[in-house]
Design a protein around this nucleic acid. Structure first.
Length: 873
RNA sequence: GCCCGGGUGGUGAAAUGGUAGACACUAGGGACUUAAAAUCCCUUGGCCGAAAGGCCGUGCGGGUUCGAGCCCCGCCCCGGGCACCA
């Protein structure tokens, strides 16, 4: 041993605190600053080690601060991260802030301060709280979606979507509050009234950016088979995408001037059973179909339907309502005349906004037909004499001349083909998934890097920067003038938010950005993206055009769609991340977050990732190979934690009273990670006592290493065996995220340790390594002190202990005796006992004997090493 | 209504079809202490029994099995998600 090494040993040993009792107030900050000074959790982008990327769903830094639910998931990933490091992986474990969003904007409106100020203060608070929990994040990779250096690439990705024709503008209905003169989010509308002030709201069409996620519907569905996700989450995404095969069928209208009505059905085989049709109140043909005598009734009905909130529509689900338009269509299969109704149970957003109603075989149609005394024709034979309608089961086609007797799937194909031959039908695949409404009329979001120009200037753009434009121009028309969307050149990104006088919307349905004339009305250089206010003289040069900037901003989803990629290389100014980093780290190996994101966030991120894959930016098809949902922690009252219920638990309180190691351990001990569980302060004492016990087993009364620990001590065979069992179990349970029982196993070991009169130092050190991912501060402290001169580095650098398979084996096992399946005692027996030997031992067992006396043995079931079941008459 | 989870002691919970209740919490009793705290030991699903032990017991009713908390069928209850999706 060299003198130099001795010095470093001494140095590390003295890194520990000198506290005599388990003083977490001293130990925890001490080791947190040790890790910080040593940059212990820095992940290198090049390494010979295998990589492991473990990611949390990054938080929205709300003003309320951290909530006890946050550290639950974060502790789980931290345990994994620390464990994988000990297993020799180069671990990437980053954190950032999803910082755009409504609450910061509402705060800005209220106080008049810039949302960035409030957001920064919230981030500072969140960061303090998260650091106090001792998570092993690589803080050098921290990011915030509101940072222009970050959203520059959010805007860049949007421009890729734009040039590929995946972004367009359309009039879309949104909640509008005439009183507040503003657009409201769904969550700001409560029972058809604005959350603020309780004013009435209405649906109003506004110009919106929409992303063509439906173009990826098939792939989003198909690729679910390649990811390791909870089945329930996969099923939810499948249902959301909602693929169904059917046909679009044209019904000629009786009034030939109106042409025909296109419907979508999944059951063309029931076409003969169509006795009426329904169009959605919003259907473009509704007006034309309405006859003068029906006009008043239809208009009134449409007005009522438009005013209905989603909630009201839901409540009225049991009571179908509708109005006859007065018009008829002709069923193309049998030329029958069918009445056309308007009803709000048909939605404009799904299929074609019009249906053929087959009341005999559809529950909603049946209910409607009964209510309005419309005819009901059965066309599927249920196979039984008495059929209860509506019949939606399997059967053969009937009452359908030319198709009778066919199995319905065959009839479906044949009818579709026959009508297709006459050009009145087309087999189609329909999705429930709708294109993604991607703009907000708000201030606090990423500005769209888009400007609007006239037709002449657009022609100029086509000539100069045609490769950045979509094949079909994105346009909108206002007051007879068509406006064309052109991108701000990527070299000019980020396009930052201008300062505004007021964070209130403009009052015209546009965001507050519409009030910043100098920013809004510009001369734009198509090639460089440079801009000067239109109030100034046009700069000289061919590329300058007169433009008006887009005033919409992006939704909060935008930033969270790709943040997992930025962590790989967050300082990069040339790309969202370098190709090397994208290749080395790939995508997260484990992603942990709440089930409330099962559809939207996870679907949107998958969509963007696939677009980036198509662009050749990322090498994988899917962003999140393995996903785990932590269950939510309820309040002590078993209700969801919320400010209004007053049952919110703040982690700061627990850290102050018991320390973060106790909190971390307790959060994991509460129950299975995925289960929803109520918070209970009672159990905290239990895990705190466990840590105290570990401390006492390691540290004596004067702060010295416990006298029972020595290098010379020989562990009892039982203790040695238990250690190896514990190493095996804890490792396996961390891998499968069963942290609650991993902690139980450590408790069992500690109880044995306590009873052992002496113990070898290596045994204690190995145990501390098992504890380290869960209670890292205490583990570091005890590692340094118990290790004394024998450990030279932090426990973080120690290789995860290995268990010895040979030590797990034993020569004797407990064999359980059963008579007729009932437990009748047990006995230690030699391993490898034959059935006859086992039966002989059982017969001799005093607890078994009485149950066999005078009985004839019918059968013996012997599972060696486990159970012997003797079945008697 | 549909889909997905659940239902086990006083409580949080354990149990590859093989001893139901590990590990904790609470409660009770004891040791140590002048006392308390802390710690340690014992008891802690119900019923019967002095004990040995026995009987019952995983929401309810059936079934499969040598053996069911676990698998199958039918109910009841709780939680979460979705919802006139043609």
């Amino acid at each position: 041993m060299t003198g130099r090494r001795k010095v470093s040993q001494w140095r590390f040993y003295t890194m520990a605190t000198k506290c005599i009792e388990y003083n977490f107030h001293e130990i925890e900050p001490h080791w947190q600053s040790f890790w910080e000074q040593n940059r212990s959790f820095r992940a290198e982008n090049t390494s010979s080690k295998p990589k492991y990327y473990v990611l949390d769903m990054f938080p929205y830094p709300s003003g309320a601060g951290l909530h006890i639910g946050h550290p639950e998931g974060y502790t789980a990933t931290d345990i994994i991260a620390r464990y994988k490091r000990a297993k020799g992986f180069n671990v990437l474990h980053p954190i950032g802030w999803d910082a755009f969003g409504l609450p910061a904007e509402q705060h800005a409106v209220k106080t008049g301060t810039h949302p960035a100020t409030n957001t920064a203060a919230n981030i500072t608070n969140f960061k303090r709280q998260i650091k106090a929990l001792g998570f092993s994040y690589d803080w050098e990779r921290e990011l915030a979606t509101t940072d222009p250096k970050y959203f520059r690439w959010t805007q860049w990705i949007f421009l890729q979507l734009f040039s590929r024709g995946l972004a367009y503008v359309d009039e879309r209905p949104v909640w509008w509050c005439p009183e507040l003169r503003t657009v409201l989010a769904n969550e700001e509308v409560i029972d058809g009234k604005s959350e603020v002030g309780g004013f009435p709201v209405e649906r109003r069409n506004l110009r919106q950016w929409v992303l063509r996620i439906t173009a990826y519907a098939e792939r989003l569905l198909a690729d679910l088979k390649d990811v390791d996700w909870p089945d329930s989450t996969k099923r939810m995404q499948e249902a959301w995408i909602g693929r169904s095969e059917g046909a679009e069928i044209l019904f000629k209208l009786e009034n030939e001037a109106l042409g025909s009505l296109k419907i979508f059905t999944t059951r063309p085989d029931t076409l003969f059973g169509c006795t009426y049709m329904v169009v959605a109140p919003e259907h473009p043909l509704t007006d034309a179909l309405t006859t003068p005598s029906q006009k008043a009734a239809v208009d009134a009905y449409r007005k009522k339907a438009a005013a209905k909130s989603d909630l009201e529509r839901t409540d009225l689900a049991k009571d179908k309502s509708g109005v006859f338009t007065g018009s008829y269509a002709i069923n193309p299969i049998n030329n029958q005349r069918v009445p056309i109704w308007v009803a709000d149970y048909v939605l404009m957003g799904y299929g074609t906004g019009a249906i053929m109603a087959v009341p005999a075989h559809d529950e909603r149609d049946y209910e409607f037909a009964v209510q309005y005394s419309l005819p009901i024709t059965q066309v599927i034979d249920s196979g039984s004499a008495e059929t209860k309608l509506p019949f939606v089961g399997d059967g053969k086609v009937m009452n359908s001349p030319g198709y009778d007797g066919m199995a319905w799937p065959d009839a479906k194909k044949k009818i579709t083909a026959d009508l297709a031959a006459r050009s009145v039908a087309k087999a189609t695949v329909n999705f429930k998934l709708r294109d993604w409404l991607f703009s907000r009329q708000r201030y606090w979001g990423e500005p769209f890097p888009i400007a609007w120009v006239g037709a002449e200037d657009y022609a100029k753009a086509k000539a100069k920067v045609g490769n950045t434009l979509p094949t079909e121009p994105v346009t909108f028309t206002s007051e007879g003038v068509t406006h064309y969307a052109v991108p701000i050149a990527t070299s000019a990104l980020p396009l930052e938010l201008p300062e505004v006088q007021s964070y209130l919307p403009s009052g015209t349905g546009e965001s507050p950005l519409a009030n910043v004339t100098e920013w809004l009305e510009i001369w734009l250089n198509l090639e460089t993206g440079a801009a000067v206010p239109a109030s100034q003289a046009r700069p000289s040069g061919e590329s300058w055009v007169r433009a008006r900037r887009e005033t919409n901003t992006m939704p909060q989803w935008a930033g969270s769609c790709w943040y997992y990629l930025r962590f790989l290389d967050n300082g990069n100014d040339d790309a969202l991340a370098s190709p090397e980093a994208l290749r080395y780290w790939g995508v997260p190996d484990l992603y942990v977050g709440g089930a409330e994101h099962a559809v939207l966030h996870l679907l949107y991120a998958r969509f963007w990732h696939k677009v980036l894959f198509d662009l050749g930016v990322v090498p994988q098809k899917e962003p999140f190979t393995k996903l785990f949902h932590q269950g939510i922690i309820l309040g002590e009252d078993g209700e969801k934690m919320s400010k209004s219920r007053g049952n919110v638990v703040n982690p700061d309180t627990i850290i102050a009273s018991h320390g973060t190691d106790t909190l971390r351990l307790y959060l994991m001990f509460l129950g299975p990670l995925e289960a929803m569980k109520p918070w209970s302060p009672n159990g905290i004492e239990g895990v705190h006592r466990f840590l105290q016990k570990v401390w006492r087993e390691c540290i004596g009364k004067e702060g010295e290493v416990n006298a029972k620990i020595s290098d010379a001590a020989v562990d009892s065979p039982d203790l040695a065996k238990l250690l190896h069992e514990t190493i095996k179990k804890v490792g396996e349970k961390i891998e499968s995220l069963q942290f609650n029982t991993a902690i139980s196993d450590m408790m069992v070991f500690t109880n044995a340790l306590q009873k052992a009169p002496q113990v070898n130092r290596s045994t204690v050190l190995a145990f501390l390594q098992l504890l380290a991912p869960f209670a890292p501060h205490m583990a570091e402290e005890l590692w340094a002190r118990v290790g004394g001169g024998t450990v030279t580095t932090s426990i973080l650098h120690a290789t995860w202990p290995r268990f010895d398979e040979a030590k797990l084996a034993s020569s004797e096992v407990k064999l359980v005796f059963q008579v007729n399946g009932k437990h009748r005692g047990d006995q230690l027996v030699n391993v490898g006992l034959s059935q006859d030997e086992a039966v002989a031992i059982a017969r001799a067992n005093p607890r078994v004997t009485p149950h066999l006396e005078g009985k004839v043995v019918k059968r013996v079931v012997y599972v060696p090493g486990k159970i012997l079941n003797i079945v008697v008459e």
